[in-house]
Amino acid sequence: MGKIKAAILGTGNIGTDLLYKLERSEVIEVVAMIGIDSQSEGLKRAAEKGYATYSNGIEAIVANPNMAAIVFDATSAKAHVRHAKVLKELGILAIDLTPAARGPFFCPAVGTTENLLDLHNVNMITCGGQATIPIVYAVNQVADVIYGEIVATISSLSAGPGTRGNIDEFTITTRRGIEEVGGANTGKALIILNPADPPILMRDTIYCEVKNMKEEEIRDSIYTMVEKVKAYVPGYRLRQEPLFDGNRVTIFIEVEGAGDYFPPYAGNLDIMTAAATRVAEDFARAMLDRTTLETH
């Protein structure tokens, strides 16, 4: 089986961590790392590893549209709005790791009903969304979530300028994900940066107000979902047993990263890049299957 060619746009924390993860992929081959600052740490690392690097941003793809069938966008929400248009015109699949929310939301643990080959842009929601939406979904499946609220706390060191400049896009996109993917009637998302040294692991608290309180079923559904997420984010775990109080259940999650590019505390980066890798691999397989079908 061949591999599908992909480029990474954005050389910050997320882009660089993604590069490390994609190196291990059996169906995706990274052909270029593209940034806008030739001196950036991410570009230097990619060059050292022997990848083609570009510092002229999206122009690098416009100049050579055949270089990749998939482009991962790890820039910022504002930049992605522009990139999305360009990539669509070029017929390249965009996997968007910013909270720009141009394409349908994807969360691997929840799955999708979309036909992959029809899509040209998919959005990975946010790190907080990837960590919490599976739990909201799990609770909603058995208890009907009326209101889902999540609090994502991440270490300051793991929040790059893209995240910091787009905090509103984070909270708004995460809220939409809680509703549209998680299934809560109403959602709310909060994000907190904590500068403690040594840095804290990513932690997420999920509050669900449910219509049908069934403790046993809710607990089991949460446990099953945690295992599902663990399959692609090994450091994903419950910090405490779920707490039940009236019609409310509170779930405490902790995400330890795989330590690929960033140290393990940056579970927020890890869950984002792991989820994007998982989704991109599904697309790559679908693309490879189509090629096989067409040749036969």
Binding site: T153, N194, R203, R239, Q240
Partner: peptide, 16 residues
């Protein structure tokens, strides 16, 4: 634990 403003969820967590 150097908890910052807004981390009210840590109160239950720490108490538990």
């Amino acid at each position: 634990q150097k908890v910052v403003g807004g981390q009210e969820d840590m109160i239950i967590d720490v108490a538990a």
